[in-house]
Design a protein around this nucleic acid. Structure first.
Length: 848
RNA sequence: GCGAGAGUGGCGAAACUGGUAUACGCACUGGACUUAGAAUCCAGCGGAGCAAUCCAUGGGGGUUCGAGUCCCCCCUUUCGCACCA
């Protein structure tokens, strides 16, 4: 049994004391390529969990491999330390959030060190420290000046349980992403970042992200949700008559609708508008209906969930400018106010939602699209199969009848623009990013409100605006900042009069939108957020690793932030993350590991029992990184068993290698005297080295690399047991150096996964330090493959495997095959052979 | 409902461009060592059959000399989006 406790401690201390993984921003040295390996930094919840271990083991494997290959590797870590749990803990345990956070970070840093990750600790970033968040406040001020940060009163998502607002991205299925309670809607003053200014660029640049999984790219595209369509003005009239209405309230009003299907406009049989539409009240004719409107508004505020479509007729009508027909105006609960114009033309024949509503309220349905005449079946079916939402040929559409729907979209849009009743527009689903949070433990927004001057941004020289320390947590009502007099009351820098500070803090996703830039800074940290030249050197991140749960939020915000900082002249960069790996979840008993499921496995206990190397090896071996990982206790034991076997094999054999002094690659091998089995071992090894390099260069299927090295160790052990001890002692120098090379190579291959034991074994074998050496080159030990197995098929069915000389021609192999009794049974007579397919050194297929 | 991915032994999984399916590991079974156990080592391990052989990569078709891999249909399942007009 190897003493993992001693070995792991020894190497961790050495790594730390010698600052082995500290890097320099070596901009001058163009000969050394850089590699930025980044893992999503953790929230300091208290302890590292298995998801972290997996995430960081993957990152560490890549970082360590790249370092062996000679890259200048930046591999940093930090803590995303603002956020609600700290505050909730403060309320629950009467602690201070800063204190709680600090303790957690200390504990977790220790855990990360015990796991042996190769971080450059000098670049540690902790987002809740003023040295970090002061820069965020500076960015905010610059964004404010440029109009990228603005305040508006709007309907926002509100989580009553967290007592704060949420961004759209943070609402999942009408529930809070963090605590799962129902989200309601509130009217509030909020700060927003103008991410919509970048909607088009964010969308367009997705196509440059070749190293991202398609899944994530699609999710972002859908989230941005670009759609092009047409807005059309419909004239409002007060009754269905001639339109000469004398109701002064309505007058010459128009209602503007948005549609992506202008081709269906002749089928519009009613207009549906949001209850929040500014015209809603004025077009309602019956005062009783105003109550309905209020109820509907109220219901939409309580819950985002609309399971049943509801609506009512307002008593007013509008004129479809294409048909000149009068159609009713409805208020409907499913129409969104903040998308398009807040009103839609409803075409029940060709939209399932409009259809459902029309059926419920008995509104006319007019078919205007006929499915394209691809098959006769479709035509006969189309008339009863409404709603039909696809494209086709227009019908019942006046002059546009008979035109294909794609063409009709253009023609009808052009017509509307020419007549000045409509406009082609592009809409995005993406909304501006609401960053105000009504909580204490976050970055204060550097704004104050002056009685005279209104909204006043803080002076840059007053940064950082520190979060006050002396706060009381009751858990009730508003943020403790609201009650903190000395924080709130201040003086306006403009007029010297009385002013009050903003008490909201920023969404914690703001911190994580630029932390990867902060890591590039190695000196003068108090003077800069980062330096443009460092960012240019290190970015983009060559490999980013984290969970899919951040596919939209964090990754979209970060992309936006980089583009915004670029336009504020901080950096020259368009996209932060070149390659993205989204690792799967850690599963136990079919469910994601979580406290609430009670199926968590604590890394601490495992490290104590088996060591960090074992935990890391299991986590990388049990599944490829992008797949979910099923936890298995016996699998962990298997990993432990393998490391022990590996260790014993290498240490035992190092005795035999005692007289091989110096570097294994400095001895000149005499090929003629090399034992054939040794030659073969080297031959197998070369294949694995090559395979490892391809895997470690982007596919990252560590599980297959590990299984290959297990095969190498098995082959090595087979070799040593086949020779007995006496014969082993008789091995010549060339054999020994080659075997030393073999063991060294396996140590190299496994080092990214189990660095402690490999560092130790390298030292035992060579007396030197593995970090000072380079990844092994393939070598030729004089092995030439003489024979190979050839699969022989008859009529495509496997019948036998024969041995033939390497690179034999078709006739030779055929003759060998025809001698085989198993083949004779199926292809007795050579003359009956119709065709032969021969793949050199692999396969022979005889067709009879 | 829309979009994307995944279905291979008892289990986690291999199989790079179509070419010997089940590598590697786990579990299991037998054996060696031991007073006994643990650990370790050796052997076996998709299914059926005494055997020759046959059948097996979710199901059904197709392309091909040859399909886990390519094409079409279906089933199951995971994930994302869901009144965005």
């Amino acid at each position: 049994m190897y003493n993992f406790q001693e070995i792991e401690k020894k190497w961790q201390d050495l790594w730390e004391n010698d600052k082995v993984f500290f890097v320099k921003n070596e901009k001058d040295s163009l000969s050394v390529p850089k590699f930025y390996c980044l893992e999503m930094f953790p929230y300091p919840s208290g302890r590292i969990h298995m998801g972290h271990v997996r995430n960081y083991a993957i990152g560490d494997a890549i970082a360590r491999f790249k370092r062996l290959k000679g890259y200048n590797v930046l591999h940093p870590i930090g803590f995303d330390s603002f956020g609600l749990p700290a505050e909730n803990a403060a309320i629950k345990h009467k602690t201070n959030p800063a204190e709680w956070t600090k303790n957690n970070i200390e504990y977790m840093i220790n855990q990360l060190k015990e796991l042996g990750f190769s971080y450059d600790w000098s670049r540690l970033a902790i987002t809740s420290e003023p040295t970090y968040y002061r820069w965020e406040q500076l960015f905010f001020l610059h964004m404010y000046k440029k109009g990228l940060a603005y305040k508006k009163n709007s309907l926002v998502n509100w989580c009553g349980s967290c007592n704060t607002t949420l961004a759209n991205e943070q609402v999942e299925d009408g529930k809070c992403w963090r605590c799962g309670s129902d989200v309601t809607v509130k009217n509030m003053d909020q700060w927003f970042l103008k991410i919509t200014d970048y909607a088009e660029e964010l969308l367009k640049d997705i196509d440059t992200l070749d190293g991202w999984p398609d899944k994530v790219k699609t999710m972002q595209k859908n989230w941005i949700g670009k759609s092009s369509g047409l807005t059309v003005m419909f004239k409002i009239i007060a009754d269905s008559g001639d339109g000469n209405d004398n109701n002064s309230k309505i007058g010459d009003n128009f209602i503007e609708i948005f549609t992506t299907r202008p081709d269906t406009i002749f089928g519009a049989t009613y207009i549906a508008m949001s209850p929040f539409h500014p015209l809603a009240e004025s077009i309602i004719k019956n005062s009783k209906d105003l109550e309905k409107l209020e109820t509907m508004k109220h219901n939409s505020l309580i819950s985002k969930d609309i399971s049943e479509k509801e609506g009512f007729f307002t008593g007013s009508y509008a004129v479809n400018p294409f048909t000149n027909k009068t159609i009713p105006l409805f208020i409907a609960n499913f129409v969104l106010m903040d998308y398009g114009t807040g009103a839609i033309m409803s075409v029940p024949a060709h939209d399932s939602r409009d259809y459902e509503f029309a059926k419920k309220y008995g509104i006319e349905i007019i078919q205007v699209i006929e499915p394209a005449k691809k098959s006769a079946k479709n035509i006969s079916e189309c008339r009863q199969d409404l709603p039909y939402t696809g494209g086709g040929i227009l019908m019942n559409s006046g002059d546009f009848s008979g035109i294909d729907s794609e063409e009709a979209k253009k023609k009808i849009s052009d017509y509307a623009e020419n007549k000045n009743i409509g406009k082609k527009v592009t809409n995005y689903r993406l909304r501006d990013w609401g960053i105000s949070r009504q909580r204490y433990w976050g970055c204060p927004i550097p704004i104050l409100y002056c009685e005279k001057c209104g909204i006043v941004p803080l002076d840059e020289s007053d940064l950082p605006l520190m979060l006050p320390d002396d706060v009381v947590f009751t858990g009730e009502g508003a943020s403790p900042l609201k009650k903190h007099k000395s924080f709130i009351n201040t003086i306006c820098p403009k007029c010297g009069g009385k002013a009050e500070r903003e008490t909201d803090t920023m969404d914690t996703f703001v911190e994580s939108s630029w932390y990867f830039l902060r890591y590039t800074l190695s000196e003068e940290k108090e003077k800069n957020p980062f330096k443009s030249e460092d960012v240019s050197y290190w970015l983009p991140v060559d490999q980013y690793i984290g969970g899919v749960e951040h596919a939209v939020m964090h990754l979209l915000y970060s992309r936006f932030f980089v583009k915004a900082l670029r336009d504020l002249n901080y950096i020259k960069l368009d996209e932060p993350f070149k390659n993205l790996l989204t690792q799967g979840m850690v599963i136990k008993n079919g469910a994601k590991m979580s406290k609430s499921k009670g199926n968590v496995v604590d890394p601490d206990g495992l490290i104590k029992k088996f060591g960090a190397d074992t935990v890391r090896l299991f986590v990388l071996f049990a599944a490829p990184p992008e797949k979910d990982l099923e936890w298995s206790d016996s699998g962990v034991e298997g990993a432990y068993r393998f490391i022990n076997k590996f260790y014993k094999t290498a240490v035992d054999f190092s005795e035999i290698l005692k007289d091989t002094k110096g570097k294994f690659y400095e001895y000149e091998i005499k090929k003629a005297e090399v034992n054939p089995s040794v030659k073969e071992l080297i031959y197998i090894l070369n294949g694995v080295i090559e395979k490892t390099e391809t895997e470690m260069n982007g596919r990252y299927h560590f599980n297959t690399v590990i299984s290959s090295s297990m095969e190498l160790i098995n082959a090595f052990n087979d070799f040593t047991t086949a020779l007995n001890e006496e014969k082993l002692a008789l091995l010549n120098k060339s054999d020994k150096y080659l075997l030393k090379y073999f063991l060294n190579s396996v140590v190299f291959i496994l080092y990214p996964f189990i660095p402690h034991v490999c560092s130790e074994l390298f030292e035992i074998l060579n007396g030197s330090f593995i970090e000072d050496e380079n990844w092994p080159e393939k070598i030729d030990a004089g092995y030439s493959k003489e024979n190979c197995n050839i699969a022989v098929q008859v009529n495509g069915k496997m019948r036998d495997v024969v041995i033939a000389g390497i690179d034999s021609d078709e006739d030779t192999v055929l003759n060998i095959a025809m001698d085989s009794p198993k083949i004779k049974r199926y292809a007795e007579d050579k003359r009956a052979i119709k065709k032969i397919i021969y793949v050199k050194n692999k396969l022979l297929n005889i067709i009879v």
